[in-house]
Design a protein around this nucleic acid. Structure first.
Length: 156
DNA sequence: GCCAACGTTGGC
DNA sequence: GCCAACGTTGGC
């Protein structure tokens, strides 16, 4: 079992948006960064994901999602009308992948970046070291520490 | 709005 | 292959 963190701007797509999808599940399209893509390719069904809201007043981990489908080609790279259309991506060897995630667990309250920053054991998190990486690994130690800070409940 | 960090592009 | 210019991310 591996652990991850995925960032999203809630104005574009939020935790509530994911929860309102059929089966609380959606595909994670639009990733156009090789490091982030490679992390998605390393994901396995059952891996857990911190769902993180960025570009807002109080950036925070707002929920826990689960990987329910492993990496497969992101169809939006071939759609000329899509925001993340990539005309240079070869049809027979697509550059960009996505995974499917499902909203899995609720936190009783969100875990803010301020709170995370105050914890010395978390100072090496990719979240702080590699600021622009929108899909990133979380270590087991980091995962257990953070999830231990909150009550978790299944998403209904 | 500012600015640091980092990725991408393109000239040479 | 190098590197300057530029664009984007994202916290503050």
């Amino acid at each position: 079992m591996k652990y991850w963190l995925m960032k999203t701007e809630p104005d574009a797509y939020s935790w509530d948006d994911l929860k309102s999808e059929p089966n609380h599940t959606d595909h994670w399209d639009g990733i156009r960064n090789y490091a982030a893509r490679n992390h998605m390719r390393d994901m396995s069904v059952g891996d857990l994901v911190f769902f993180y809201h960025s570009m807002i007043k109080v950036p925070a981990i707002v929920g826990i999602a689960k990987v329910v489908k492993e990496a497969y080609p992101d169809h939006t790279q071939f759609d000329p009308d899509a925001k993340y259309f990539d005309p240079k991506s070869p049809q027979d060897n697509p550059r960009w992948d996505m995974v499917n995630i499902q909203a899995f667990q609720e936190l009783d309250t969100e875990v803010t970046i301020k709170e995370l920053k105050a914890i010395p054991e978390l100072s090496e998190m990719a979240l702080f070291r590699i600021s622009r990486l929108s899909v990133q690994p979380v270590t087991e130690v980091e995962w257990k520490l953070i999830t231990g800070m909150r009550k978790l409940q299944p998403v209904k």
